[in-house]
């Protein structure tokens, strides 16, 4: 399992990286954490002509709150999210998600940006970013543009990233007080892709009703999936088991999983129904400050 040949380029700045991408055409790839790309190259599923290593560009690995957003720079490694105590406190859904990805060594290198840019519906962050209603900053030769997460995933393994563009930042709106979320995943063994997983992010109103609900689903369709009807059904309602069961059913209705080694489509729908209910319960608890 030997990777094919390529030219390796190390830009010192973002504009230089973008220029290199333009210069080398479709076959050039951005190398960040490398944990989607290098395994694909070893299997010779990917044979890029050039790798543009952006990991040495200073200032891309930030994680900070600013202007109403949690901003995650494109080179921020997964491990950073686990290690920052304030992230654990304020963004439990994000930390839950990170901890379910692969294993500690992989998380030391892998980036959140890469997890999204790969466009794999089996990856974990896409559903989480859907739940958070995140925005993606994409930078190209003509500057930066912002793409809502709902418009970022365009097809199977395809994103809104155009040739010559780099995903530069992920922006999560800072949740209001009385918010909570969680990520629940059924996997065959630790570090595996999900048989099914759900990301839930809730905000409660003063009367305890659900003010905002975000629900993303992992690996249940060709694209990361938002459970829109479930979100709508929750909004404005008081939390209850019956409501959560209804949301679970609506989330399952939004899913179109495929049969695979992890199980049948029907099995995955059962998982979605159940995981949604559990995730909603826990998210409410967290929003109420009970866990």
């Amino acid at each position: 399992m030997i990777p094919p040949t390529f030219d390796y380029l190390v830009p010192a700045t973002l504009p230089e990286a973008i220029a290199l991408l333009h210069e080398h055409g479709d076959e050039a790839k951005v190398l960040a954490g490398g944990h989607s790309l290098i395994p694909a190259m070893r299997l010779r599923f990917a044979e890029p002509s050039h790798l543009i290593d952006i990991s040495h560009i200073p200032g891309l690995d930030y994680v900070r709150e600013e202007g109403g957003f949690l901003k995650i720079g494109t080179m921020a490694r997964e491990v950073v999210l686990e290690d920052l105590p304030w992230i654990s406190e304020r963004y439990p859904l994000l930390v839950d998600t990170t901890k379910m990805i692969a294993d500690p060594q992989v998380r030391n290198l892998a980036t959140v940006g890469g997890n999204l840019a790969h466009g794999d519906p089996a990856n974990d962050h896409p559903a989480t970013m859907l739940a958070y209603r995140a925005e993606i900053e994409i930078t190209g030769a003509s500057g930066a543009r912002i793409v809502p997460i709902d418009e970022f995933f365009t097809d199977f393994f395809t994103t809104a990233l155009e040739h010559g563009e780099i995903l530069t930042e992920i922006r999560i709106p800072i949740p209001p007080s009385r918010s909570g979320g969680c990520y629940l995943k059924v996997e065959r063994k630790v570090g595996d892709y999900a048989a099914a997983a759900v990301a839930v992010q809730l905000s409660l109103a003063a009367d305890g009703s659900i003010e905002q609900a975000g629900i993303g689903l992992t690996n249940v369709a060709a694209l990361p999936t938002r459970a829109v009807d479930a979100e709508n059904a929750l909004r404005g309602q008081q939390p209850s088991d019956a409501l959560f069961a209804q949301a679970g059913q609506l989330a399952a209705d939004a899913s179109s999983p495929a049969d695979d080694l992890r199980g049948s489509a029907e099995y995955k729908l059962t998982l979605i129904r159940e995981l949604i209910q559990r995730a909603l319960r826990r998210s409410v608890e967290r929003a109420q400050g009970r866990s």
């Binding site: 065959r188 199980g263 029907e266 059962t270």
Partner: peptide
């Protein structure tokens, strides 16, 4: 004995 196999049984027996 995978969760999927057990799920199929639980489904067939009406538990799920």
């Amino acid at each position: 004995v995978t969760p999927f196999k057990v799920w199929k049984i639980l489904k067939e027996k009406g538990v799920i």
